[in-house]
Design a binder for these strands. Structure first.
Length: 454
DNA sequence: GATTGTCTTT
């Protein structure tokens, strides 16, 4: 998500073209957020529609991504350009973004009219478009709709192939509809000549719901059918054992991988380091970490993050900090996850001031805090009745690049209600974030308003 | 966006 809001993305909108746009995507997004949703043809909109704004697909996409948590606004903007601009025509990737936003809001009528519009402009829909919609259907608890979408793809001018088959299976698996995925797999594996990736997706599916015996069955079947498992297959299985709490089996599987001369990689080692750590086996996690270095497999930032996280959770924040400093000394560049994990660790230990310091540090290092950073810090503050601190962060969020999302409101409000301190709500009222919820116009927003009579 | 490792909470 952080990537979506990066500065480079916005400035690159100017592209290699001759003249820079009069406004960047941040300014445009702000303008759109400040205008009422119902009004039409307000001066700002006329500005957006004027031929002086040199719209490019990059600029449009950047605005859409900035308005990700303000879906109705994003769609309003998309439609405005689509319907009223004389020259600009959306590209396929902008349609995909708009479709994703509409599907996320469960506005399926809009989704389908966008797909029709896309088709009439001969821009798609592409397999990617279908992957997006299928994923949204699946995560909205409509896996059958996702399957039907795949089965009827060809009616919308898009051919099914192995890639799209693997995609729909993965979408079903990731939303924990593994039985359904396996069913579809068995029914259609003859029609597409399925490959290692297909099997890997199914193996991963069973692992995700901790049914490792089923995963092993699929692995066996794959070998019997002459499709060779690869390192991804084994790494998936290994992670599955750890996830299911089968530490002994995981270790034996790992040893077997080494015995059979698999080219064990950084993903394998990271999985084991993290797996042992989560199981509370810090010593073994460290041993494996040292072993990988001896074996000449370089730990990545992710490997360090895995170890830092488990040190925070199962050992001590102090040791996690030591690891962090060691990582810096070795020349690694920490990412948002590194900082989030450490800040969470410090906050969890009640050390708010060092957590805040670390956030300052991450900013100084050019690593922008994301939603997770803010929401996590706000959660800890409101749980400890530090409402002023929580609201200060909330304000900082609103003025920066990382606009508060619905989760933020939920965290703030529930944090206050848990404490049942009426004066908290007075503070909250002063901050007028109830108004913000109204403006966000989402279903859950209005539910909140009704629930708490804001 | 065809598959695997690090970030939501116990």
């Amino acid at each position: 998500m952080n990537r979506l809001f990066s500065k480079s993305l916005c400035t690159s909108a100017a592209g290699a073209n001759l003249k820079p746009p009069p406004a960047d995507s941040a300014a445009i997004a702000k303008l759109l957020l400040s205008s009422p949703t119902t009004a039409h043809q307000i001066p700002e909109e006329q500005f957006l529609l004027s031929t002086k704004t040199p719209w490019t697909p990059q600029l449009v996409n950047s605005v859409l991504k900035r308005l990700w948590n303000h879906g109705p606004k994003a769609l309003q903007f998309f439609h405005l350009l689509d319907r009223h601009h004389r020259e600009y025509v959306h590209v396929a990737s902008s349609f995909d973004l708009a479709i994703d936003i509409a599907a996320r809001l469960h506005l399926y009528t809009t989704v389908w009219s966008l797909i029709r519009r896309m088709r009439s402009l001969r821009l798609g829909p592409s397999p990617k478009t279908f992957a997006i919609v299928a994923e949204r259907y699946a995560s909205a608890g409509k896996p059958d709709k996702a399957v039907n979408l795949f089965l009827n793809m060809h009616e919308h001018g898009c051919f099914q192939d192995l890639a799209s088959f693997n995609t729909i299976l993965d979408v079903l698996c990731k939303s924990k509809r593994v039985e359904k995925a396996h069913e579809l797999f068995r029914a259609l594996r003859g029609r597409f000549s399925v490959d290692t990736v297909t099997y890997n997706v199914i193996v991963n599916g069973w692992c995700l719901i901790k049914r490792t015996p089923k995963a092993l069955e699929v692995l066996k079947e794959m070998v019997e059918r002459g499709i060779n498992p690869n390192l991804t297959t084994y790494n998936t299985m290994l992670k599955g054992f750890f996830r299911a709490g089968q530490i002994k089996q995981a270790w034996e599987f790992f040893l077997e991988m080494k015995k059979r001369n698999c080219e064990i990689d950084v993903v394998t080692y990271t999985t084991v380091v993290h797996g042992f750590g989560v199981a509370g086996e810090i010593k073994r996690a460290r041993n494996v970490f040292d072993e990988m270095i001896r074996e000449g497999v370089l730990p990545s930032v992710a490997t360090h993050n895995a170890l830092i996280q488990v040190l925070c959770k199962k050992d001590s924040v102090e040791n996690a900090i030591v690891m962090f400093e060691e990582m810096l000394r070795k020349g690694y560049e920490p990412n948002v996850t590194t900082y989030n994990v450490l800040i969470r660790g410090l906050f969890h230990a009640g050390d708010f001031s060092r957590g805040e310091e670390l956030m300052k540090r991450m900013k100084n290092e050019g690593c922008e805090p994301n939603f997770q950073t803010y929401n996590m810090m706000i959660r800890y503050y409101s749980e400890c009745s530090e409402v002023e601190k929580a609201l200060a962060l909330f304000e900082k969020m609103g003025s920066g690049d990382c606009l508060p999302n619905l989760d933020t409101y939920n965290i703030l409000i529930s944090g206050m209600f848990v404490r049942k301190r009426s004066e908290d709500m007075v503070v909250a009222g002063n901050q007028a974030f109830a108004k913000e919820i109204l403006r966000s116009q989402s279903k859950s927003g209005s539910l909140l308003i009704r629930k708490f009579r804001l």
